[in-house]
Design a protein around this nucleic acid. Sequence first.
RNA 1: GCCCCCAUCGUCUAGUGGCCUAGGAUACCGGCUUUUCAUGCCGGCGACAGGGGUUCGAGUCCCCUUGGGGGUGCCA
Length: 496
Amino acid sequence: MRVRFAPSPTGYLHIGGARTVLFNWLVARQANGQFILRIEDTDRSRHVEDSVQKIFDDLRWLGLDWDEGPEIGGDFGPYYQSQRLDIYHEHIDRLIQGGCAYYALETPEQLQAMREAAEKSKGGFRYPRPDPIPTIEQGEAARSAGQPVVVRFKMPDEAITVVDDILGEVTLASDQFEDFVIQKSDMFPTYHLACVVDDALMGITHVFRGQEHLMNTPKHIALQKALGFSTPRYGHLSVIFNPDGSKMSKRDKEKAIKQGVAPPEIDVHDFRSAGYLPEAVLNFISLLGWSPGNDIERFALDEMVALFRVDRIGKTNARFDRDKLLAFNTDWSTRVSPTRLLVAFKDFLNIHEDTPAMMREADDAILARMLSLCEGFRTFADVIKKTGFLFVADESIEFMPKAVKKVLQKKEGAGLAMLMQLLPKIESLSDWSGEKIEQLLSDICEESGEKLGNVAQPIRVAITGSTVSPSIHETLAFLGRDRTLTRIRRCLAMHS
RNA sequence: GCCCCCAUCGUCUAGUGGCCUAGGAUACCGGCUUUUCAUGCCGGCGACAGGGGUUCGAGUCCCCUUGGGGGUGCCA
């Protein structure tokens, strides 16, 4: 079995594309087949600089490796379509010479006008085969005269049935077909031609792709027949939508930024820089249109390989529920090993834009402690938020007015009084460990009859400026004795 | 407009004619744990789009309606 993923380099890898890769990859790995990566860069106008590298990065982050393709090589290369132009020309030529394709002379403007006319008369436009068809000589003459000339494939006049491993049999009547373009006027092949030729020459046996390609498949089958290729097995995947039912597109991000709200994660890279684990992302998207058929929902990549079954891929479109992804991420953050979590966290700190400088320089031991302090977090971004106060200078702690009022000043300054009372006791603690600090605080509570909250909260506000932090004794242990005392003193000086 | 695909809790889904009084996850609500924010644990709410058939029996098969989606590019 040989399967492929064939993105066009128009930007980062979309989350929907990620699911397509995942399913293809799973099928290949399970069958001990090959997974091939091919870059479909036949549209020069849409090409985005660096996006190929970005797609590789995203795939590697997800842990989806390819057996053949860019940066790996293989016996069926090159794996960039832009480097296979001669191959396509050869095949296009064969079709023209064999009478299966012909030069078409309409300009884009003429076609546009025909489409508009068809729309006005409430009909759909279908390209009418010219009668007579331009001869090869006419086509070549027009081309050398500088006119835009394309090559169109003669679609056969018969119904075509797509045998789909997900959808079943889908038959399209011949009156739905038209002679479609296989070579553009810039001499590049269209997607249809390049895809069919490459799939055949690369020995692809199974194609799982988005449902937007279902109507293309009869075209591809006809091309395969004309070229003497066999038809691979096809499977068309459902579409993934936003929670509101709209299409998940990169434009959502621009829209959100314009409206001043946080842009939603759309591309794989967005999830990476927002602090998700690839394990969680993979697990979550695997469940969009697939299920192992029982009540088990959590699995790592290797478990998915074992469980995956093409006949368990669903037909229904799915909405992307970020809340559920978030829950998966929390779950996976406790499921992976501490070592693995640390590696992922460091990757995040590198990529994330708002990583505090001091955090960037923190060593592994400190980062690992941050993670364990924050156990139960949603994303890595929350870890930054929750521990950020540890990474600012003691004299730069900003006190949130609400916190000061509620915890320190209420009840005639009970909180401040508590801090004052606490200060000497904390000063005299010689063994500065989490356990000892916890012991000290509970002793204080017992002596004074105070609830732990009344003791811990003022300290929390004093050292963080807010009412939120990891558990108080661990936080103090982390901060260290000197910095703790400095912060408490500063707080007392500012608010007494 | 035409062609095609799809249809179970808000969302992701299990269900392949009797195991369905429809299961799980997530969200939401309530309780417990707790020094804060979370996490965790327990409980609750909550769906077969509508209408016709077929059958002893239908969420499961067929038809229609409705709704959603895809296609109708010298994009992929």
